[in-house]
Design a protein around this nucleic acid. Structure first.
Length: 555
RNA sequence: GGGUCUGUGGCCUAGUGGAUAAGGCUCCAGCCUCCUAAGCUGGUGAUCGCGGGUUCAAAUCCCGUCAGGCCCGCCA
């Protein structure tokens, strides 16, 4: 309803401004908490172009606005020094809320066809297990996908799996030398060998590495098969780590695909007019970027960039929107990639760059074997969650384990998603394990409380009758913003906005929970409050699932 | 050195042109005979790194400066 009201006000405001001949290119509505539902400061902008005071203009606009009744707006006002405030229709709000309680489809889903979008995320090299740096990538990607899906996109996630090039050649060389044991998790075993191969006490046989690279480039089936075995094993471990946190990749695309089906060569030919040869290497130079992009080495083998270009060309044909989630170390490269695609008329991807996750001790490195793996993190958090559940509820062990698992997944994911991507994170395991209030368990707990009331309520009719009580009004109004926040979060590609919204919802429900007795209250109130609880529970559950974790009924 | 991102109460984070800068942690004072206290209420605490500028209006835009991260590979 919030979304509809927003649209209605904006449209009407545009009409009025056009009538008055006041052109404003950037018409934006604000949400001034406590003051009004929506507001605009458009009068200030107009004022600077005319000789009228903002408040006079605001009053004129407000007058004109009210020439036509608005469906979702009950009251407007022009206030000093020149804002126009909008207050929503309580009747419409109530209707809307009652619809939400009874509708089949989930709360917040926007019925619109916004086209296909591929979200490429994580895409870590199969040279070891995923660590918490990759986790930030995975959580942002997966959550964004859920939010986009809810806002009307048809989404797919892809993992671009590197199985070509120098790094992989080095890995294969290392495995040939040390062999791959079978006793432990394969991604971990591979990670150990990879870091051993790169360590200072080991000398890399450059000739062999060169040979492997050449063979792969020339589509040598035997070498490909040998490497495939390793890559597949490692990816299996990666996939398991992701699954642990409720992250599912829809499609895995191997880099070699584009060499083997000749699309790398095809795009290379397409780029020919822009390519320059420097010391035998084929590269592209840019006017606006200071650094050239190498596509092929002196020996004719392709570099990652060229294969990635072929991948992006392929993706551009499959979806209208492509979003890549990348670490900030890829910033320069992604700029080059986009420019290069534009040269040959291919729509470049959008990129969401996230800053690094560091440990209190310093940086993580797969090559050096310094990192906290997702597995370790998950185990730690789950252990802690189990202690917490165990302390509070007398229940069977399996039940406590299940809840602990759900809480752990939620706590980890929420911790990463609530921070805007462009902020660097210093990851402290101690702090991550101690459940802070501003985290997922708090939200899950609110849902459990709501569920508990409903479970004990029996069969009472669910219809919201009165929403004039301030505590209730605050809560239900917040729920009415659900699809609006989904929309905003999706269009701005900012999943943390939704994470914050959901925390506020939980917080508002807890205030309601304290102030308003539900089960033991007198009848018109009981039914009304019960309906509010049901609606809140629905919204919390839907929001929790959108963030990629579960909402236990009890915890 | 060049590019880029970040800098908000003791700590973590939101807000990136609009009305008193919003939360959480910590600390202090309260609230379980009453639907799950993983909760709630109140309080202490901020010249938004620093200095200029633009604007009716700046945490937000511009310039400079300091501090930290990342990048500047024929790696990915």
């Amino acid at each position: 309803m919030f979304l509809k009201a927003y649209g209605e006000i904006k449209t009407r405001l545009r009409e009025v401004l056009a009538q008055k001949n006041w052109e404003v290119d950037d018409l934006k509505l604000e949400e001034p908490r406590e003051i009004a539902d929506l507001a605009t400061a458009v009068a200030f902008k107009i004022s600077s172009k005319t000789d009228k005071k903002p408040i006079e203009i605001a009053k004129e606009i407000e007058n004109q606005l009210n020439q036509k009744t608005l469906e979702y707006v009950e009251k407007t006002e022009a206030t000093e020094p020149g804002y126009i405030n909008f207050f929503f229709s309580q009747k419409q709000l109530k209707n809307h809320l009652n619809q939400l309680i009874h509708q089949k489809k989930e709360i917040g889903t926007i019925k619109e066809d916004k086209g296909n979008v591929i979200v490429e995320h994580t895409s870590a090299n199969p040279t070891g297990p995923l660590h918490i740096g990759h986790l930030r990538n995975a959580v942002i990607g997966d959550t964004l996908e859920n939010i986009l899906e809810k806002s009307g996109y048809n989404t797919q996630t892809q993992y671009y799996l590197n199985d070509m090039g120098k790094q992989m050649a080095i890995l294969l060389h290392g495995i040939r030398e040390y062999g791959l044991g079978t006793n432990k998790s394969q991604d971990e075993a591979i990670g150990e060998i990879y870091s051993k191969t790169n360590s200072e006490d080991h000398e890399i046989d450059q000739e062999e590495v060169q040979d492997i690279m050449q063979k792969l480039e020339n589509k040598d089936k035997e070498t490909k098969r040998e490497l495939d075995q390793i890559v597949d094993k490692c990816y299996k471990g990666i996939q398991k780590s992701l699954k642990q946190l409720n992250i599912q990749i829809d499609e895995v695309i191997k880099e070699s695909k584009f060499v083997f089906d000749d699309s790398v060569e095809e795009i290379f030919q397409q780029l020919k007019p822009f390519i320059e040869i420097d010391d035998g290497a084929a590269q592209i130079e840019f006017d606006e970027i200071d650094k050239e992009l190498v596509l092929k080495r002196e020996d004719g083998t392709s570099v990652y960039a060229l294969r990635d270009l072929a991948y992006h060309k392929w993706k551009a044909q499959k979806a209208t929107n492509n979003i890549d989630i990348l670490g900030s170390d890829h910033k320069l490269y992604s700029k080059q990639l986009k420019k290069t695609l534009e040269l040959i008329g291919i729509k470049p991807p959008e990129t969401i760059i996230f800053e690094f996750v560091s440990l209190p001790a310093g940086e993580m490195s797969t090559r050096k074997g310094e990192f906290i793996s997702i597995r370790e993190l998950f185990e730690e958090v789950r252990k802690k969650a189990y202690e917490e559940v165990d302390e509070r509820r007398k229940k069977p062990r399996e039940w406590k384990q299940e809840v602990a698992k759900e809480v752990a997944i939620a706590a980890i994911r929420y911790d990463f998603i609530k921070v805007a991507p462009n902020k660097p994170i210093s990851f402290d395991l101690e702090k991550a394990v101690s459940f802070k209030k501003q985290g997922a368990p708090f939200i899950q707990y609110s849902h459990a409380r709501a569920s508990n009331i409903l479970q004990k309520s029996g069969k009472d009719k669910t219809k919201i009758q009165a929403i004039n009580d301030p505590v209730i009004n605050d809560l239900v109004k917040h729920i009415s913003r659900f699809s609006y926040v989904i929309q905003k979060s999706a269009e701005k590609r900012k999943p943390h906005l939704f994470a914050e919204y959901l925390f506020e919802l939980a917080s508002k429900f807890n205030q309601f929970y304290r102030d308003k007795t539900v089960l033991d209250s007198e009848q018109p109130k009981r039914q009304n409050r019960l309906a509010v609880v049901e609606l809140t529970k629905k919204a919390l559950k839907e929001g929790i699932q959108t963030l990629g974790f579960e909402a236990p009924k009890e915890m």
